[in-house]
């Protein structure tokens, strides 16, 4: 292999690895705070990429209907509870956030010529349509089971993933999409071409990771999330409700997913079910970090990206086999090094 190929493959690996790292961080976050192993993380990547593609094609993305439907369901469920408990003051915000805004967004999508808008506005709209699905899904699927064992939460998580895959097919069809690159600039690095888009992905991922670091280290809401992950009872006694932490956490996870989807949409063709494998590769990274350590998870994810890119060069047909078999030695290493004291789980 010559240096040029090495650089190309490395570039590819790091680009994908950066995305996997973002997803790995989101997965570790969601697990630490809510104990949910968030399998649908990948679906947010696909939804993000495909919603943006639909907007650019001048279509109304189907995800908006999901937003309206989930919002309406929440409004009905919570509305009845508020009425029963006579807490009328909370009704207007409930209706505005869950029914009003989604309908407004839907109307806006029909009125605006989305395909002709500038890119940054399309990206913003994509985020606004898809990200709220995260907290809504938390409210509907996970919040009623907040105290259930990890295993039950995992099965629910898989069920949500399966439903989202089906809905993805319904919204976007079986055809894949690829959006035009954000930038056409190209550099040269030691004789190998370096795409501007690649640089953009790495820089944007790094920026997001730094942003997350500041959120967790510097803001009171970020600290509240960390506190919930460390000590649920302690956090509750401080008036940090688990439901708030859960929703906040899924908002972040969804935002990270959608953002990743937007970043890779120009690099690779995304299908309605592409998210699953992408998310799982983030998972392999997260598991390398033991579902607990953020930096190790991020490094693990980059390793997955590199492994993937090099194996696609040497044994392209077995790319997935190699990446997912990696988890076995990783788990072996984890299991030999971690002294797991079994906690009682009711």
């Amino acid at each position: 292999m010559d240096l040029q190929i090495l650089l190309l493959l490395g570039q590819d690996g790091i680009t994908n690895g950066a995305i996997y790292a973002l997803l790995a961080l989101a997965l570790v976050l969601v697990f630490a705070v809510t104990r949910v192993i968030f399998i649908p993380q990948g679906e947010f990547v696909a939804y993000g990429a495909l919603t943006l593609a639909a907007l650019q094609a001048g279509k109304v993305p189907g995800t908006i209907w999901l937003l309206v439907a989930l919002g309406a369901t929440i409004a009905v469920l919570d509305g009845f509870r508020l009425l029963r408990e006579k807490r009328y003051a909370k009704l207007p915000p409930l209706l505005i956030f869950n029914v009003g805004l989604p309908l407004l967004a839907a109307a806006g999508l029909f009125a605006l010529p989305a395909g002709d808008l500038p890119l940054w506005l399309q990206v913003t709209i994509t985020m606004l349509v898809v990200v709220p699905l995260g907290p809504m899904i938390y409210r509907l699927a996970f919040q009623p089971l907040a105290s259930a064992p990890v295993l039950v939460l995992l099965i629910v998580s898989v069920a949500v993933h399966v439903a989202m895959i089906g809905l993805g097919l319904l919204f976007f069809g079986a055809e894949g999409s690829r959006t035009p690159p954000f930038t056409e600039i190209s550099f040269e690095l030691a004789g190998a071409p370096l795409q501007g888009q690649t640089v953009l992905v790495v820089v944007a991922s790094a920026a997001l990771i730094i942003g997350l670091y500041f959120f967790f280290e510097r803001t009171i809401y970020g600290k509240a999330l960390r506190a919930t992950a460390m000590n649920r009872t302690g956090a509750r006694l401080m008036g940090i409700p688990p439901a708030l932490a859960g929703k906040l956490c899924l908002t972040l996870a969804a935002a990270i997913g959608v953002f990743s989807g937007i970043l890779i949409a120009p690099i690779t063709t995304i299908y309605y079910d592409s998210g699953f494998l992408i998310g799982l590769k983030g998972f392999v990274g997260a598991i390398i970090g033991g579902l607990a350590s953020y930096p190790v998870a991020a490094l693990g994810a980059i390793l997955v990206g590199l492994l993937e890119s090099f194996s696609s060069f040497y044994a392209s047909a077995f790319k997935e086999v190699i990446v997912f078999t990696l988890i076995i030695p990783v788990l072996l290493w984890r299991s030999l090094t971690s002294r797991h004291v079994e906690e009682e789980e009711e």
Binding site: I220, M230, N231, L237, I240
Partner: peptide, 25 residues
Amino acid sequence: TLVPEKRELFAEMSVEDNLLLGAFD
């Protein structure tokens, strides 16, 4: 407010951050 028997502190956070979260609500 309740100061529980087990204290329930946020062990991997600084004293200052623990205090700050006391004012979260």
